[in-house]
Design a protein around this nucleic acid. Structure first.
Length: 271
DNA sequence: GCGACAG
DNA sequence: ATCTTGTCGC
């Protein structure tokens, strides 16, 4: 019996992830600022990448990848590009980039030749918060040589981090009750003036792998921000925070909405 | 062996 | 990720 994904070489992807991880830069590699003074470059164009999937009538897994570029501070979409795909193999935890990175690279390569090349790109998934320190946001950031930030909606359980513990601490912070001391005192949530809560994601190794963020007081479930490539965690948080209208930051939310709609139109047309 | 596992 | 309508609330 032939296995469904017998062509998938996870050992080869392991090696590539380790290789790319060694090239990830975790400090700011640009001169722009989110809050810029008069004589400084300002952050104006933020990208968002996401993919929607669906099985078609021929049992093929189809997908549409979408890149959007938003202008700050209005968060209006000034550029959109999509790419239609037939997925060669199924999803595997830890190997998201194997599925999504090729499409992302094509979209980013194309946008670089336009006036809408984003200064930083938010990627649906994780960056260095990953079993080998190289999630899809880091992968695409290094290969495309562009600053990236990983934004995940569900926590990857890496280095002892669990969604249960994170949410317990953030809920306590929101209610003003005592923070559980289970993972030491490194993971202390911060409550912000606008009602949002942030909390460092510190693994058992002591490394800070990212930040949990609830965008505003009405949001219970956090999103998880991690460095992709070429940006510091504190700057990444500034970027993500100024993109938050809803739980999911606007660039990723728009890429999600538009890729889903495009895919639906594609399949409804029987293509 | 058991549980966990981005999208 | 996706299969799926209405509904409660700001």
């Amino acid at each position: 019996m032939q296995e469904p994904d017998s062509g998938f070489d996870s050992a080869a992807w392991d090696r590539q992830q380790v290789e790319i991880r060694s090239k990830v830069i975790t400090t700011d590699t640009f001169t722009w600022r989110v809050e810029a003074g008069v004589s400084q470059d300002k952050l104006r164009l933020v990208g968002g990448l996401d993919i929607s999937f669906r099985v078609d009538q021929s049992e093929r897994e189809r997908a549409v990848a979408c890149l959007v570029v938003l202008s700050l501070p209005t968060l209006e979409v000034v550029h959109e590009a999509t790419l239609n795909l037939v997925m060669p193999h199924s999803y595997r935890p830890g190997y998201l980039a194997a599925r999504e990175c090729p499409a992302y690279m094509q979209l980013l390569t194309a946008v670089k030749a336009t006036p809408f090349c984003p200064q930083v790109v938010l990627v649906d998934g994780f960056g260095i918060l990953h079993p080998r320190g190289c999630g899809s946001a880091s992968h695409v950031g290094v290969l495309a040589d562009i600053p990236t930030i990983g934004v995940g909606k569900n926590l990857l359980h890496v280095d002892g981090l669990t969604e249960q513990h994170v949410r317990c601490c953030m809920r306590a912070a929101g209610e003003g009750t005592r923070i559980p001391a289970a993972a030491g005192d490194a993971m202390l949530p911060t409550c912000h003036p606008n009602g949002s809560i942030t909390m460092p994601l510190v693994g058992l190794s002591g490394a800070t792998l990212g930040m949990a963020l609830t965008a505003n007081a009405g949001v219970q479930k956090p999103v998880y921000v991690s460095i992709g490539h070429g940006i510091s965690l504190s700057t990444a948080m500034e970027v993500v925070r100024c993109c938050c209208l809803h739980r999911v930051p606007e660039p990723i939310r728009q890429a999600d909405i538009r890729s889903r709609q495009h895919l639906r139109e594609l399949l409804d047309a029987g293509v």
